Simulated assay, not measured.
Amino acid sequence: MLDYKRNPIPIILMFYAICFAFRTIEYFIFRTDQSMIGEAFIHKLAGILLLAASMPLFRYSWAEVGFSHKKVLRNISLGALLGAVVFTAGYGIEILIQLSAGNFTGLKLYVTSYSVLGNRGMQSSILFIMICIAGNMINVIMEEGVFRGQFVRLAEEKYSFFAACILSSVLFGVWHIMQPLRNVIDGSQSMAGAFMAGLILVVTSTLLGIQYCMLYKLTGSLWAGMAAHFMNNTTVNLLHVVTASGVDELLTVRIAIAQTLSFLIVLFLYISRNRKA
């Protein structure tokens, strides 16, 4: 085995490449996110299994990669509260904009699958809501466990937390290029449009990754980041702004407001904590 303590980056990139290969297969072959399920969850389950299988190899405990049993409910509550506050602001501003234009008609609860071309699908049965919730739980366990848990823990064997945070967050950003890439190959989006969508996804996802890394450092576990991540994804999938001219027309504005506010709050808390230390 490679000496992961002296040179952790090859191990991180190798693990990432395996996860990315599973993701590519699911997006281009199985396309579960385009099915009635509406979630690309197979590669996430594979990532969780790979994470579990790698633990004995690195001699890490689950607590050492962020799944600490200490203050679990407290940290989950903090992450959920953060998500609720910032998305209340995001929805509130979106609704005010639509009200000022005389366009707002209400909010609706149903399941969609998020896409860079707009939300897809419209399922309101309890079964699809449960599938959405379960899929997002699998998603946050895998992405937080791998990117913020294992990758940061491995990188910190040699490098600073800041360097580990940037590395894992950039990888998390690149992780999100799959959908625009598939859109180009399928012919549903132009090369220029896909490039811009991909660039926006990579940048915003990288910033999200940095935010969740800071939450990890602030709380000493992944639970707060997992809860905030879950609130981010599930809210977008379930709660929709309906207008006279369509649905979720200002979705990107809502998400940008919520994620920017969330990032600034976490950054403020992180800087404040470090100044006191």
Rank of each mutant, 00 (worst) to 15 (best):
residue 31 R to N: 04
residue 130 M to F: 14
residue 165 C to M: 15
residue 170 V to H: 09
residue 65 V to F: 07
residue 50 L to C: 08
residue 63 A to W: 11
residue 220 G to P: 01
residue 59 R to A: 14
residue 276 K to L: 08
residue 199 L to W: 14
residue 32 T to W: 14
residue 1 M to E: 12
residue 44 K to D: 11
residue 69 H to T: 09
residue 36 M to H: 14
residue 189 Q to E: 12
residue 223 W to E: 03
residue 219 T to S: 12
residue 275 R to M: 06
residue 94 E to D: 11
residue 184 V to R: 12
residue 157 E to P: 07
residue 230 F to W: 13
residue 245 S to L: 00
residue 39 E to Q: 13
residue 6 R to E: 15
residue 166 I to A: 08
residue 137 M to D: 05
residue 46 A to G: 01
residue 87 F to R: 09
residue 154 L to H: 01
residue 232 N to S: 03
residue 109 L to R: 07
residue 134 A to I: 10
residue 161 F to W: 13
residue 202 V to Q: 08
residue 272 S to E: 14
residue 235 T to E: 04
residue 244 A to Y: 02
residue 242 V to T: 07
residue 131 I to H: 02
residue 140 V to D: 04
residue 228 A to P: 03
residue 42 I to M: 15
residue 124 S to Q: 09
residue 179 Q to E: 15
residue 181 L to Y: 13
residue 101 A to S: 10
residue 258 A to K: 01
residue 230 F to S: 00
residue 133 I to A: 10
residue 268 F to C: 11
residue 178 M to Q: 15
residue 129 I to V: 13
residue 105 T to F: 06
residue 126 I to F: 15
residue 215 L to Y: 08
residue 39 E to H: 13
residue 99 L to V: 04
residue 190 S to Q: 06
residue 251 L to K: 05
residue 205 S to E: 05
residue 74 R to V: 01
residue 213 C to T: 09
residue 43 H to F: 15
residue 41 F to Y: 15
residue 165 C to K: 14
residue 18 I to F: 03
residue 117 L to S: 14
residue 119 N to R: 11
residue 119 N to K: 12
residue 95 I to V: 09
residue 165 C to V: 01
residue 76 I to Y: 08
residue 108 K to C: 00
residue 217 K to N: 13
residue 261 L to V: 03
residue 148 R to E: 02
residue 199 L to R: 12
residue 20 F to M: 13
residue 237 N to W: 10
residue 36 M to T: 11
residue 197 A to T: 10
residue 176 H to R: 12
residue 47 G to D: 12
residue 188 S to R: 08
residue 188 S to M: 05
residue 10 P to Y: 05
residue 10 P to K: 02
residue 179 Q to A: 13
residue 193 G to M: 00
residue 229 H to Y: 07
residue 72 V to T: 10
residue 20 F to P: 04
residue 264 L to P: 05
residue 120 R to T: 07
residue 48 I to P: 10
residue 255 I to P: 02
residue 73 L to R: 15
residue 138 I to C: 07
residue 180 P to V: 09
residue 232 N to K: 04
residue 167 L to H: 03
residue 238 L to C: 04
residue 37 I to Q: 08
residue 224 A to I: 06
residue 174 V to K: 08
residue 228 A to V: 06
residue 109 L to E: 05
residue 198 G to Q: 10
residue 39 E to P: 00
residue 209 G to V: 03
residue 123 Q to C: 00
residue 266 V to P: 08
residue 28 F to G: 01
residue 237 N to A: 14
